[in-house]
Simulated assay, not measured.
Amino acid sequence: MLRWETLSLGLLLFLQGCALSRPEKAPPEEAAHYKFPIALPTEGQQVLSGPIAAAVSLAMEDFLPLGHTLPSDASPMERCASRRDAYDVTAVPGSADASVVFVSFSPRESTCRDLPGPSRSDTPVVYAVDITRSRILSVQK
Rank of each mutant, 00 (worst) to 15 (best):
L2Q: 08
R3H: 14
E5F: 10
E5I: 09
S8L: 07
L13V: 05
F14I: 03
F14N: 06
S21D: 07
R22E: 12
P23Y: 02
P27M: 10
P28F: 04
Y34L: 15
K35R: 14
F36N: 07
F36S: 12
L48Y: 05
L48P: 01
S49I: 00
G50W: 11
A53H: 04
A55T: 05
V56F: 02
S57Q: 14
F63I: 04
L66R: 13
G67I: 09
P71F: 02
P71R: 10
D73E: 13
E78F: 01
S82Q: 12
S82N: 15
A86G: 12
Y87N: 04
A91K: 06
G94D: 06
S95L: 01
S95I: 01
A96P: 00
V101D: 00
F102H: 14
F102Y: 15
V103T: 02
S104M: 07
S106F: 01
E109C: 00
S110C: 00
R113P: 01
S121W: 13
T123D: 14
V126G: 03
Y127W: 11
Y127M: 07
A128P: 01
V129K: 09
V129D: 09
V129A: 09
V129L: 10
D130I: 02
D130E: 11
I131A: 00
S134Y: 11
S134D: 13
I136Y: 02
L137K: 11
V139H: 00
Q140Y: 12
